[in-house]
Design a protein around this nucleic acid. Structure first.
Lengths: 233, 233
DNA sequence: TTAAAATTATGCTTTAGAACATGCAAAGTT
DNA sequence: AACTTTGCATGTTCTAAAGCATAATTTTAA
């Protein structure tokens, strides 16, 4: 398939959520300015303190948004799956990025210049509402995360992280195996704990028959128990 | 002064930031639907899980946005001063409140029905941008808070909280005394620590001549040192 | 294929900060 | 004035989780 036809296919099929909000002129503007980029596993898409210039659209693969903290400790803030948009917050806030984005696995992304997005929002109230809604959802999520990450104990935080992975990436065809295969270190960075404790606590959950672990393959055996631990334990 | 003229004065003078974005019809809509409410010290304005119905505008006093966590532990998420707006996020996200708001001291607030705000955003792109900008700033702040509250040590967290108080409420005329007088428990709830540790660490800072403490009156003696502690130690 | 590096797994030690207890002092209340 | 409540201060104990060390396993590279 030619690059041109791939682009049109990608844009018309995969951008569905935003695409349906646009008129023909706007659609034209997008196809003319949309650029496809590919990233290798662990490749950085943008970094904290960079100036935001593009709206990023994840078309294929998985992306993590994270923040580097003290002593190399990293906190994963959000996970993205196709088709989701990110990278716009800092532009709207008129400030540099406060977090970084990198590809979890080989990924394909599209970009649109934020200046273009801005002018389209000016002329399309649905698009404005799309971003108001996204920002509002994310803000509620971050506010909640502040409390859970600071107040829940290790088991509760890990259980919550596993549930987040279920909700974000779902299961393989067996309906049990998590459709994401991440290093223990990333599990730790998601749950605000050290790698050692992520390993220890995963082992404990396996011993308790809540999950099974085979390398990076995690099967959820007792999701109800997991939700209970997340809520209380 | 009559209630009516007070209302007009309040609206035209104090709502400046949003007011200037509106046309005469919109201004009329606001004056007709704006309601003034007063709250006593520590009175709850709205609570987590309530359904959001109003845009709140703080006209006088101080308000804290907080979330109740585990074992009665409370995390203060944001502080408001006149003239600032809040209470709209949950409505835009189409979900119940995930946090509560209460008056720090006797306060005056105004409300506008969110349905009205929504229709005004539909017809006023500047108003849409106002909220996109606010939400984006707040989201960046919350994402940053996730990392500082989970990774910084007690002294760093307290130093950061004090700096937040400086930035939010500033100083009395002497240029040193914090213009907010909060219980040690609230200082603790702002910095993710126990009341005991807030007391201890404030005492330590006083001993080190970084601040002086006289009851709830806190004087910032060495702001540079405070910023240094916030950044590193 | 072998070597090197990274990742996973576990045991042991240390520690930051929570939990608890107690004493004072200030400020209302009767 | 006596009593009660509330908030501040400080010392002591306890524990969840970090830090460290080491080994086994897996992955990558040469």
């Amino acid at each position: 398939m030619s690059i041109k036809s791939t682009l049109e296919k990608v844009i018309s099929e995969d951008l569905a959520e935003i695409w349906s909000l646009l008129n023909p002129d706007e659609k034209r503007l997008i196809t003319d300015n949309f650029e496809i980029h590919t990233f290798k596993k662990n490749q950085i898409i943008y970094a904290e303190k960079d100036d935001p210039a593009y709206l990023w659209c994840l078309l294929k693969g998985k992306v993590k948004l994270y923040k580097d903290g003290i002593g190399g400790r990293q906190q994963i803030l959000r996970l993205y799956r196709p088709i989701q948009y990110f990278g716009y917050r800092a532009y709207f806030a008129n400030e540099p990025y406060v977090s970084s984005a990198s590809a979890f696995e080989p990924s394909t992304l599209g970009t649109l210049p934020m200046a273009l997005v801005k002018s389209m929002i000016d002329n399309n109230r649905d698009l404005a509402w799309f971003f108001i809604h996204e920002l509002s959802k994310n803000l509620g999520g971050s506010d909640t995360k502040i409390v859970t990450l600071t107040q829940k104990h290790i088991r509760g935080r890990l259980a919550e992280a596993l549930i987040l992975l279920i909700d974000n990436y779902g299961f393989e065809d067996d309906g049990k195996t998590l459709k994401i295969y991440m290093a223990r270190e990333d599990v730790a960075n998601l749950s605000n704990m050290t790698t050692s404790n992520a390993i220890r606590t995963l082992s404990a959950f396996a011993q308790e028959r809540i999950i099974t672990v085979d390398g990076r393959r995690i099967k959820i055996v007792d999701e109800a128990k997991l939700r209970q631990i997340s809520k209380f334990g």
